[in-house]
């Protein structure tokens, strides 16, 4: 498979220097769970592999009131970390439901985002938690709101010389919920997934976030649906209208996992259920 060179730097400065030097030739590898199938099946022939597992980016901490997660933190830690459970329960739930135990050991939060699968399980909870991503390069750091991060299937705003190093979540009010519909009860990709966060005052919705996965070319924030319920007193019929609106914002396709028709049906149900749960209105 041609000549490939490998770097496993232990300092971020060294990593970004290598990125600046090799740019498009570099394939960044964290856990490798999305990347290795492509290499094993000859769909990708990397010239330079940059392993970022030794940069010390495996951490979950609280800083300046924010929950801060290193990009190389494995999914298994998100699933079991008490801080994540308390501050970002939808993220913890998405982590628990992603892949299998052996995948969660190695798959990282940064990899899940940088891979930019429309069905990425961790993307929707991060969208509703207003996550901010820290990108770095030899040119300096920049912060990108997760809503601006995804460009298309497999595409993000990351420049060839940039590295995603950290995800931070502001302290959020309200209850967040993640629901996923796969095709079996374990080890399944999302046919559709939904994350919702509602800030309620009694029955009134003060603020809302709704995101859909596997329903558009990118993980999708449904802002029209959110504005439909912001400031409103929630009841079943409003929830149903909001769910329909969220799905109306999406553009699912037919593929090997489901048809567009089914995704819309199931997506509507999942959004409504997530809203009801987040609003403590479950029947």
């Amino acid at each position: 498979m041609g000549e490939c060179i490998y770097f496993a730097p232990t300092e971020i400065g060294e990593a970004v220097r290598l990125l600046a030097e090799y740019r498009e030739k570099v394939t960044v590898v964290a856990g490798g769970t999305d990347l290795l199938p492509k290499i094993n099946y000859y769909q990708l022939k990397p010239e330079v592999l940059l392993h970022i597992g030794r940069l010390g980016l495996d951490y979950i901490k609280e800083a300046d009131g924010k929950l801060v997660i290193g990009a190389a933190t494995p999914t298994s830690k998100l699933a079991s970390n008490p801080l994540v459970a308390e501050r970002a329960s939808a993220l913890a739930e998405a982590a628990r439901q992603s892949g299998s135990a052996a995948i969660r050991t190695t798959a990282t939060i940064g990899g899940n985002l940088a891979n930019a699968s429309p069905a990425a399980d961790l993307a929707t909870p991060l969208l509703i938690l207003d996550a901010e991503l820290l990108l770095t390069s030899t040119r300096g750091n920049r912060k990108v709101a997760i809503n601006d991060f995804f460009v298309g299937p497999g595409k993000t705003v990351l420049e060839p010389d940039e590295l995603l190093i950290e995800v931070s979540l502001p302290h959020q009010k309200g209850k967040s919920v993640f629901l996923k519909l796969g095709r079996r009860k374990a080890m399944t990709l999302s046919v559709v997934n939904v994350a919702v966060r509602l800030e309620m005052e009694g029955a009134q919705c003060k603020d809302a976030r709704i995101a859909l996965g596997a329903m558009a070319p990118v993980p999708l924030r449904c802002t029209r649906a959110e504005s439909l319920i912001k400031g409103q007193v929630l009841d079943k019929s409003l929830i149903d209208r909001c769910a329909a609106e969220a799905v109306a914002e999406s553009s699912p396709i037919d593929d090997q996992r489901a048809t567009s028709w089914y995704r819309k049906k199931a997506g509507t149900v999942l959004v409504a259920r997530a809203l009801a749960r987040a609003a403590d209105m479950e029947g």
């Binding site: 590898v29 290795l36 050991t105």
Partner: peptide, 14 residues
């Protein structure tokens, strides 16, 4: 910890 050896870069286990 359980991992998929087919998804683990060999050099990464150094």
């Amino acid at each position: 910890e359980p991992v998929r050896s087919c998804l683990t870069l060999a050099l990464s286990v150094a």
